[in-house]
């Protein structure tokens, strides 16, 4: 997988198929990006599990914190890692000890570890790096268009009137002509420099 620019169908396939998501580094502080993403994904119907050893005994939006992936005790579809790039490898190594293995390992916006990604992919796990699942879901459903963001999708279909907490269709036509290749290139240059 080319981790500089993901085809929309790759991201769409992941977001359409996963149900349970363990979020490593989830924060109960409501101005942290992990809190935003956790809350949004829970509202869109994903089965969210907060993982953070510093908050065991508390809960996040009604879901109890667990200390580690191994403590979850049931199969996971996806692990969403809200940690800096330098803390990715141990999480991936722990994920590789799970049975069954998770289907997807997702690293948040700003996080990228190509060696960890290669290990996970060698075990048959799909990997996404330096993306936010909330942003990608909002983009592919065009919900993020409220913020003037280029969703890079088009549709001539009438969408259902949105109601609170509903799953949105993310099966819109993708647009390469309005791509953000410039932004992808800049991110690649940055990751090559670091």
């Amino acid at each position: 997988m080319n981790h500089d620019a993901y085809p929309d169908n790759y991201i769409r396939g992941i977001l359409n198929s996963v149900k349970s998501i363990a979020m490593v580094g989830a924060s109960p502080v409501n101005v942290r990006p992990s809190y935003f993403a956790f809350k949004y994904l829970a509202q869109r119907g994903y089965d969210m599990i907060p993982v953070n050893p510093g908050h065991v005994g508390k809960d996040l939006l009604g879901k109890p914190f667990v200390a580690s992936l191994r403590d979850i005790g049931r199969p996971l579809d996806m692990i969403d890692i809200f940690r800096n790039s330098s803390h990715i490898m141990p999480v991936v190594e722990e994920a590789l000890t799970l049975d069954p293995l998770p289907k997807v390992i997702w690293m948040q916006l700003g996080a990228r570890d190509d060696a960890a990604a290669a290990k996970a992919e060698a075990a048959g796990i799909k990997v996404v790096m330096n993306r936010c699942p909330k942003i990608e879901y909002g983009r592919l459903s065009s919900e993020i268009s409220w913020m003037g963001v280029n969703s890079r999708t088009l549709s001539s279909k009438r969408p259902p009137a949105p109601t609170q907490g509903m799953r949105l269709s993310i099966n819109r036509m993708s647009v390469g002509g309005g791509d953000t290749a410039a932004s992808d290139r800049a991110a690649k240059n940055k990751s090559e420099q670091s």
Binding site: P7, D8, N9, R12, S142, S145, N150, S151, L154, S155, S156, K157, R158, P159, P160, A161, P162, N171, R172, M173, S174, V175, G176, G177, G178, D179
Partner: peptide, 24 residues
């Protein structure tokens, strides 16, 4: 859903706009 590359004129007409969910 192929990842097609629509041209500039298609984007000029369609990008950002979809039928209104409430009224159509």
């Amino acid at each position: 859903m192929s990842d097609r590359l629509p041209g500039f004129s298609t984007l000029a007409v369609h990008a950002g706009a979809q039928p209104d969910p409430t009224t159509g």
